[in-house]
Simulated scan of single mutants.
Amino acid sequence: MSTFTVRRGYRYRAEISLGVLESLAGNEAVAARLRDAGFIDVSVAGAGRRRVAEGLWPNADASAPMPHQITAVTEIEAA
């Protein structure tokens, strides 16, 4: 599992690949998981196994292992 660092005030876009059972979750359920992790202003688009999520990291810089469902992360902009 790779480690990723998020920085305060930056927006991120994540490509998400869900398992078969996970793919039954709605976009709001996926967004709730990201909010639980600390992101705000979260949006999720897509359906089934492929989703794209965006969110703002308002907290101090942090590093953590990236869940296997996250296949790519892009830093979008500073807020």
Rank of each mutant, 00 (worst) to 15 (best):
H68V: 11
V30T: 08
G38K: 13
F39M: 12
S43R: 13
R50Y: 06
N27V: 01
S63R: 10
T71I: 06
R35S: 13
D61M: 03
V30S: 07
A47R: 15
F39L: 14
A64L: 11
R50I: 00
M66T: 10
N27C: 05
N27T: 02
I76K: 13
I70N: 01
G26N: 11
T71V: 11
E75D: 09
Q69L: 14
N59E: 06
G26K: 13
A31F: 02
V44G: 10
W57T: 00
L34R: 06
R51W: 05
R33A: 15
V44I: 04
A64V: 00
T71L: 05
A45D: 15
E54T: 13
M66Q: 09
V42A: 03
G48D: 05
A72C: 04
A32L: 13
R51A: 00
G55S: 07
D36P: 06
I76M: 15
A62W: 03
A60F: 10
V42Y: 01
L56S: 01
L34K: 07
V73L: 03
S63K: 05
N59M: 09
G38R: 12
A31H: 07
D36M: 09
W57L: 00
A25N: 15
A64T: 01
R49Y: 07
V30N: 12
V73M: 01
G48S: 01
A60I: 08
E28Q: 15
A60Q: 07
R33D: 14
R49H: 11
I76R: 12
R50W: 06
L56F: 05
G46Q: 09
E28I: 02
A47V: 01
A37Q: 05
P67D: 00
I70L: 11
T74H: 13
A31T: 09
E54Q: 09
M66C: 06
V44A: 10
H68K: 11
P65T: 05
A72P: 02
A72L: 12
R33G: 15
Q69A: 14
R49E: 15
L34F: 08
R49C: 05
R50M: 00
A60V: 12
A25R: 15
E75P: 04
I76V: 15
I76W: 13
A62M: 06
A31M: 08
N27Q: 14
W57Q: 01
V44M: 07
A32M: 06
P67H: 01
Q69Y: 11
D41L: 15
N27W: 03
L34I: 09
V52I: 12
V73A: 02
I70M: 06
G38V: 10
D36Q: 14
G55R: 07
A32S: 14
N59P: 05
G55A: 06
V73Y: 02
T71D: 10
W57M: 00
G46L: 01
A72W: 07
I70C: 03
P65R: 09
T71E: 11
N59D: 08
A31I: 09
E28L: 13
I40K: 11
T71S: 14
Q69P: 07
V42S: 00
A53D: 08
R35H: 07
G48K: 07
D61Q: 05
V30A: 02
E75R: 14
Q69C: 08
P67T: 00
T71C: 08
I76P: 10
P58T: 01
N27S: 04
A53C: 06
A25V: 13
A37W: 11
